[in-house]
Design a protein around this nucleic acid. Structure first.
Length: 549
RNA sequence: GUCCCUGUAGCUCAGCAGGAUAGAGCGGCUGCCUUCUAAGCAGCGGGUCGCAGGUUCGAAUCCUGCCAGGGACGCCA
């Protein structure tokens, strides 16, 4: 609306000759950081000053005089060096509480997606071991982003991709079979150096023995390794699902690599690449000629032993996402250790005829785990693993989620196990939740005293702490929009913190239930609206909003 | 050597489709509980935004170079 007003005023100024007929830069509105500068601001005059050859402050004054008064706007002022600042009326702000109360937890929903179908694929750890701590980051990032996209009107599908075929599973199967034989007393059985050495493999082997007995000793080794590996992978998939459950991470789909072979899509994709002239045979292997598309290097898709690489199935997987299931947009969340595969995959997906605007790869930097001063090297294969589920047990789900969410995906993250345990009680999430619990407490007291406030008059809310709080509440839909546009859900944690601070400050300054009945009712409305917004924000982040702490 | 990410307060990090005095949490120091939860509030102290150039009316934000840290450059994923 403000943009329209400004655009209109500028056009008028040009018509009347007050402003030369220069081409307009895009008219933008910002939210000033300093509240004294109003609710919204535009720097349009500064941008016009040069081409118009007029002092920006003069342009600002001219435009201000041309903008007609509107009911929602208290003031429009030109400010040096050439800003136009808009301030909303107190009454309009207060009235917005009614719409929050009416919308309840739907407040914050916006319609940016128009129901378009977007898939978010994340975690996708191989079923060769339990989830270690670092996967918590991708899990929380993906689930929060999905929640926000859903709030913004997208039809979201959350998916986990299991690499349950290929090379690594082969090694996994052989490692597990070796443990199986060891458990049954075969001292000669050995886990190969490139195999999986973790202690959980012994437990896994024992579980399979308990269920299946010794029968795999009777069949040929390679076949036995295959079958034992399959059983082990199934158990681990179930375990991984359980661990994700603990962190309250939900998926709509579990996609297996194997299915790409079973339904022929893998072969189909290879055929497309071959027909397009993107494959060559070299040194006994099949290569995808990414260099012909401007990339740095070619990539092997089928090894000389006939086994496809990870990239090959990933191309087929994306064929499935775009051409078979026809998602409008696909967001993959990868760790920085996969950064090198981005270019190759994008090139291949482009070859499939997919507009690359539709494919977004979010690459988050890695999490390094410390125990005090010591860096814990994490490797599923070597078996040095800190299980996500253990950390959740010790630190708590909400604190865990908040911690993983609170940093931008682009920043490296240190997870100190000692510190996490020690500081769990100081986690900012409790500060936010405490604000929610405090409100719940106020509402309980109101109820006990039989105070009803449906008829409260919000226009009585005119003091600075009240209006500041209302302004914060109204920011939620904008936050949702920001997260959708940037795909950076960490902004939510900062918003939550900011909102809680504003509430706590209000709480100190303004007694809600007092002798002034009318004001009490109005404030109860404000406080309930705050509770709604806090709860919504916490829920978007996958956290709980407790009524008591 | 090439590519990606990062360098902002003592520590951990926001801010970076350029904008008006650079923010928060933690830690340090002061105050504040007769009344709705002190897991709270108010205040103080703390910064050449890695360094050097450049673009611009305006740069923490954009460009180039350098320095430092992390990651990737496998017929592993």
């Amino acid at each position: 609306m403000l943009i329209d007003l400004l655009t209109h005023a500028t056009a008028q100024a040009q018509q009347s000759g007050k402003l030369p007929p220069v081409t307009l830069p895009p008219v933008t509105i910002e939210r000033p950081q300093n509240p004294e500068h109003g609710d919204y601001a535009s720097s349009l005059p500064l941008k016009l000053a040069r081409s118009a050859g007029i002092n920006p402050l003069e342009i600002a004054r001219e435009l201000v005089s041309l903008i007609p008064p509107a009911a929602e706007i208290k003031s429009i002022v030109a400010a040096p060096p050439g800003f136009i600042n808009f301030t909303l009326t107190d009454d309009w702000l207060a009235q917005q509480l009614e719409s929050i109360l009416k919308a309840e937890e739907a407040f914050g929903n916006i319609d940016l997606g128009h129901g378009s179908r977007v898939q978010v694929e994340f975690v996708s750890s191989n079923p060769t071991g339990p989830l270690h701590v670092a996967y918590g980051r991708a899990a929380v990032l993906g689930s929060t982003l999905s929640n926000v996209l859903a709030a913004a009107g997208f039809d979201v599908q959350r998916e986990y991709y299991f690499n349950d075929a290929g090379n690594q599973m082969d090694i996994f199967g052989r490692s597990l079979y070796a443990r199986y034989r060891q458990c049954l007393g075969d001292a000669d059985a050995e886990v190969l150096s490139d195999g999986y050495h973790g202690h959980y493999m012994v437990d896994l082997a024992q579980a399979i023995i308990n269920e299946q007995g010794e029968r795999f000793l009777a069949i040929p080794e390679s076949e036995a390794a295959l079958q034992v590996g399959k059983l082990g992978a199934e158990r681990l998939m179930a375990q991984i699902k359980g661990e994700l459950d603990l962190l309250r991470i939900e998926f709509d789909g579990w996609f297996t690599e194997q299915s790409l072979y079973d339904n022929g899509q893998f072969d189909k994709v290879m055929e497309i690449l071959r027909k397009g002239g993107h494959l060559v045979e070299k040194e006994g292997a099949t290569w995808f000629t990414a260099t012909a598309l401007g990339e740095d290097k070619d990539e092997v898709v089928v090894r000389s032993n006939g086994v496809p690489t990870y990239l090959a199935t990933d191309i087929a997987y994306h064929y499935n996402k775009f051409l078979e299931r026809e998602f409008d947009r696909v967001i993959d969340i990868w760790g920085a250790d996969h950064q090198g595969h981005v270019a190759g995959l994008r090139a291949a997906v482009g070859v499939l005829g997919v507009d690359l605007e539709r494919l977004v790869l979010i690459v988050h930097q890695l999490v390094t785990v410390h125990r005090g001063d010591e860096v814990v090297r994490i490797s599923t294969r070597s078996g040095d693993i800190i299980m996500l589920s253990d950390v959740i047990d010790e630190v708590g789900v909400d604190a865990c989620r908040y911690f993983f969410l609170s940093r931008s995906a682009n920043s490296q993250m240190d997870f100190d196990l000692e510190l996490a345990k020690k500081e769990a009680p100081d986690n900012p999430v409790y500060y936010v939740q405490y604000a929610h619990a405090r409100i719940a407490s106020i509402l309980r007291v109101a109820k006990e005293r039989g105070i009803t406030y449906a008829d409260g008059d919000v226009s009585l809310l005119t003091s600075e702490p009240e209006l500041t709080l209302i302004r914060k509440l109204l920011l939620l839909p904008e936050m949702v929009e920001v997260v959708v546009q940037t795909l950076e859900p960490h902004h939510l944690t900062y918003y939550a913190q900011d909102l809680a601070t504003t509430f706590h400050s209000f709480y100190k300054l303004c007694r809600v239930i007092s002798d002034d009945q009318a004001l009490s009712k109005a404030r109860l409305k404000l406080v309930e609206a705050t509770k709604i917004v806090l709860a919504r924000t916490l829920h978007l982040m996958g956290m709980t909003a407790p009524d008591r702490m």
